[in-house]
Design a protein around this nucleic acid. Structure first.
Length: 413
DNA sequence: CTTGCCGGGTA
DNA sequence: TACCCGGCAAG
């Protein structure tokens, strides 16, 4: 809870400073929560790699998820539904391409889980979502967080890059915990309306329905269902489910977008406090085209997933790389980290541990030269000396220095 | 292992 | 100082 607030405040202030602290704390929390899960996942991951069969992978995940006790209790039935839906979408996308799988998962989690549970009462939906995913990124860099928009853009790219990481998968498993039920959302295109009210993930197929839900359930306007001042708009978001797009996305990483759309709204909303009276203001009204919204959201979510992965800045480039490589993507991921280190985390001053270490290393190296204390021994001359020229047999032919085992005077370098 | 030669010891 | 050699580091 505390964290959430901090992040919120900081964000509003538009000061990115917080990112570091926030991230750290989040990361810590995340680790604790998912530690068990991660272990299990890693083991599974291993197996996965061996088999390489997507199907198997999927199954394993499911198993894992079931084993892991994800906190079902805290989610309401409605929430669960949402999760399932999102999970289904994710799975669908994943099934298409193994690489992508990890990223998608996280986003969902972030959305449904984090922000729902969220502690975000009125304050910020986005923050909750934000931290939820950010936390995972231990390695990651804090840099991403800094600029909201820019960060978003980065995120999407990054997520794709992460393909093989066990960590992601583990988290994903958490999200997936319940078997995703694709059937529901399988339709190529479907527009749903999701209630953004804290702790309420209700999704309805009609705007009217969701509005009514909000009015009656959350705004307490029971009787006057007709009365609508438009406030409900702030509390729900339009979700566009597009199976087709998802499938495509898989190949290109796009998959995330669909699920993200859900999540995104919350995130963005925070900033636009102006619009909403309540903290949980609805991001964009349904008026906005789903597409417009989805794009950003997608990115945002993706970002979240990989945020902890750090490499972030690399973004697109990385994703592009790994996409082509299919199996090798894992490698691509790794490279990013390196890059990342090199890349200054940017504006944020926080020095991620990883980065710091690297930097320090560099320093140490530089400093090392001073050590000079080492003997001044001049580099051994390359040319042949008496010893080698004349051989041990003709030692009498050597120069005196050579005879004395001193620096050769005859064949000076 | 071979080379090159520094650091030291001895006469 | 002239000579030698132990031993290290580089190759």
């Amino acid at each position: 809870m505390t964290f959430t607030f901090q992040s919120e405040d900081l964000k509003r202030d538009s000061s990115r400073k917080m990112s570091q602290q926030h991230l750290f704390s989040l990361a810590m929390e995340e680790d604790v929560k998912t530690a068990d899960t991660k272990k299990a996942n890693r083991v599974l991951d291993h197996e996965k790699e061996n088999t390489r069969s997507i199907c198997l992978l999927e199954q394993k995940r499911k198993v894992v998820s079931s084993n892991i006790d994800v906190p079902p209790a805290r989610k309401s039935s409605e929430e669960l539904d949402m999760d399932k839906v999102t999970a289904a979408m994710v799975l669908t996308s994943l099934s298409t391409s193994p690489l992508v799988r990890s990223p998608p998962v996280r986003p969902n989690e972030g959305l449904s889980g984090s922000w729902k549970e969220a502690s975000c009462v009125p304050s910020s939906t986005s923050s909750s979502g934000y931290w939820s995913w950010s936390a995972p990124s231990d390695q990651s860099n804090p840099s991403t967080p800094s600029p909201p928009l820019s960060a978003d853009s980065f995120k999407p790219f990054r997520s794709p890059a992460q393909p093989d990481d066990g960590i992601d998968e583990s988290e994903a498993s958490n999200l997936l915990f319940d078997e995703p039920i694709p059937r529901k959302r399988k339709n190529s295109m479907k527009v749903m309306f999701k209630c953004l009210w804290k702790n309420c993930g209700k999704v309805l197929s009609t705007a009217a329905g969701i509005q009514k839900h909000i009015r009656t359930i959350h705004l307490g306007r029971v009787g006057d269902s007709d009365y609508s001042d438009g406030e409900e708009d702030f509390y729900y978001t339009e979700i566009k489910l597009n199976t087709d797009s998802v499938a495509e996305g898989l190949s290109s990483l796009a998959p995330v977008s669909p699920s993200q759309s859900l999540a995104s709204p919350p995130t963005f909303p925070i900033p636009d406090s102006s619009r909403t009276e309540t903290p949980c203001a609805k991001t964009e009204t349904k008026l906005m085209t789903p597409l417009s919204r989805s794009a950003p959201t997608t990115l945002y979510l993706v970002h979240t997933d990989h945020a902890y992965q750090a490499t972030p800045p690399v973004t697109i480039p990385g994703s592009a790389k790994f996409t082509p490589n299919g199996s090798s993507f894992s490698i691509s991921w790794q490279s990013p980290p390196v890059t990342f280190t090199g890349i200054p985390v940017s504006p944020t001053h926080h020095h991620p541990v990883g980065t710091g270490e690297q930097r320090q290393h560099g320093h140490t190296i530089l400093s090392s030269p001073p050590r000079g204390t080492v003997s001044l021994r001049k580099p051994r001359g390359e040319g042949k000396k008496c010893r080698k020229v004349y051989g041990m047999e003709n030692r009498d032919m050597w120069c005196t220095s050579c005879r004395w085992k001193k620096a050769c005077q005859r064949f000076i370098d």
